[in-house]
Structures are given as C-alpha cells and as structure tokens.
Amino acid sequence: MIGQVLYAASMVAFAVALLFGYFWGANWLLDRMLATTPAMAGEAITRRDSLRTRIRPWIFLAPTLFFLAVFLIYPIIETFRLSLFDRLGQNFIWFANYSWAWNDATFRQSAFNNLAWLIVVPALSTGFGLLIAVLADRLWWGGLAKTLVFMPMAISFVGAAVIWRFVYAYRGPDMAQIGILNAFVTWLGYPPQVWLQIPLVNSFLLMVILVWIQTGFAMVILSAALRGIPQETIEAARIDGAGEVRIFFTIMIPQIATTILVVWTTITIHVLKVFDIVYAMTNGENQTQVLGNLMYRWTFIAGDSGRGATIAIVILLAVTPIMIWNIRRARAAEGTG
C-alpha cells in the first residue's frame, strides 16, 4: 500500500517532468536553433523570426495531434475495418456482421432499448432540470436545493448503481422491506416487487438513475440561461398583460430554445454511450440490454471483435447527426468570432 502511494506520487512527478521536458525543451531548442543576434543581417533575422513563428504552433499541437490520431482517428478507421472481419479479425466477410446485427434478436432488443433511453432520459432530465431551475430561482432556499439536486453529477455511474440497487432492493412479502421503493409500495398496501426482473419496468428504473444524475446538469445550464434572459422582455410581456405561465411558455422558453437543444443533445450523447449503469445493475438480463453493454459483452466476454466493432460503429452512426450539428455550430462561431 505504501509502495503504491509512492508509486503514484512518483508517477505524478514523472508525468509533470515529461511534459515540462517536452514543452520547455522543444521551445528552448527552437529558440536556440533559430536564435537571432543584432549582429546578423536584417534579412537573416527576419527569415529566422518567421520560421520560428511558423514552427511553434506545431510544437504546441504535437502531443494533442498524437492523442487525437492514436486514440480517436485511428480507432475509428480500425474499428470500421474490424467490423468487416470475422471474430478474430482474420477473414474478410464483407457486411456479414451488419446483417447478423440486423437479424439478431438481442441486438434489436438493445437498439430498441437505446431508443427508449434516448427519448426518456433527455426528456425527463431536461424537463425536471427546467422545472427545478424555475422553482429554485424564485425561492430563498433555491441555492441549497440546486446544490442538492446537482450533487449526483459528481457520483460515478457505479456508485449510483449501488445507491439505486438499494432503493430497489426486494425482501419477501412477510419481511420488512429495506428498499425504499418497496417500502413505499407495501405502505400503499401492494405486494413488494422484484423490480429489476420485470421487463420494461426494469429498463425504466435504470433510466431513472441516469435521469437522477443528469437533471443537475440540465438544471445548472438552464438556470444560467434563464438568468441571461433580458428582464425587459419579461416586463414588457407583463405590461402587455401576459400571465406568469404564458410568459414562461411564450417569452422565456423561446429565448432559451438553443440552450435546451444543447442540453438535450449533450445528454443524448451520454445516453448513447451508457454502459456502466446497465453493467452494474442487471448486466443486460431481463431485456434491459443496451448497445454499450452488448458491445462490451461481444468484445470482451464472447471474444468476437468483428461483432463488437460492428456495434461500436452503429453507436458512432447514431451520434453522427449530433456531431454534424456541433460542427456546424462551431463553424458559425468561428465565422463571427
């Protein structure tokens, strides 16, 4: 244990030294190799100056380019290639994996579940986030309320899974319930349920966990957006005779529409990648499978890199529209700024 602590500490030092060495070293070298002295001819100074300004960006960017290339760009290409090969990546089998996926019941089930996640989680998170933001901004203890709702954001999916498994815990009908959901249900006079084994209900209960985590995110962003609405527009509407509810829907919501869309898409990305929650809660049993977990199973449990890669590509295709939209927005921002 002490050894590990020392190891960790020395590795932090090593990482810092490595980065320091690279950035300082490379820049020092550049300044050194292309140094200018007042004694040199004006021409030469100018040439070296401009050479230095042309090289320096690439020193700054080189590590990032390395990481982008090795961990994102190369994998995209390689994963696509693997998706066209068989389980060990040896024989080229065209799109056989894709047609397998198309016909596979579990894959379809997972895709269907992902679709359900895709609708439920962003909708509920954004909805609750907006509701809490609106309520909290009007009440004196709103700050505290926001902190508490926001707190789950900091918790890992696995931690959240433990927390919620405890909420859904089941004890036989003749015993005292220790899970709060079943305690509530029995208090209402109904028999306790093994929640995580009831198809559809169990998927929904898994989604609840992600909603619980993401609502804080939506709330913080939307709360900031709501505060950014010019107060005059609301006052003008009030003078025009609009009620609070009407003001909310016709004046405030349209002004934060873009932000809502951003929040929605950000949550969507999280949903598409969702893995930990399902893995920890049900591991895809009882019809709760999702693509993220299915991909993990095929790749690392079943050892079929072709099918695993195919599922990964399907997830990538699903996020592509968001990617394009983001790029468009970035382009527009570049243009104006």
Binding site: G42, I45, T46, D49, S50, T53
Partner: peptide, 11 residues
C-alpha cells in the same frame, strides 16, 4: 529606410 513587411513587431 528598411523594409519591415516581414519583420516581427518587436523588432
């Protein structure tokens, strides 16, 4: 008297 088109601002 020296053309400075390509000279860095600081120089």
């Amino acid at each position: 008297g020296r053309v400075v088109n390509d000279v860095a601002p600081s120089k």
